[in-house]
């Protein structure tokens, strides 16, 4: 892993068009500005992790016939 020391206002350029800028620092938090082309998705790591975890959990959690019937009851129209 590449490790760089940066001060507020300084930047890191990644490939074509991705720029990270350190905006401010406190004791426990870094504020980072990100410039990236629209086709480059930028996501918080923990958000991606939680979606990943949930999808995997969903695969292993299937209702039985009886439970499914109860679930369907809830959405029955009239």
């Amino acid at each position: 892993m590449l490790i760089l020391n940066r001060k507020p206002g300084q930047t890191i350029h990644i490939g074509q068009g991705v720029i990270l800028r350190v905006l401010s620092i406190t004791a426990t938090q870094v504020e980072i500005g990100i410039e990236a082309p629209k086709e480059v998705p930028v996501l918080r790591g923990e958000l991606l992790d939680s979606v990943r975890k949930l999808n995997i959990q969903a695969v292993g959690a299937k209702p039985g016939e009886e439970q499914l019937t109860r679930m369907r009851e809830f959405f029955k129209q009239k």
């Binding site: 958000l47 949930l54 999808n55 959990q57 969903a58 679930m71 809830f74």
Partner: peptide
């Protein structure tokens, strides 16, 4: 995606 849990109240949906 729906994540089924044994109790219906705990069953979740990923709306995000």
């Amino acid at each position: 995606v729906v994540v089924f849990q044994n109790s219906l109240e705990e069953t979740i949906i990923n709306l995000k």
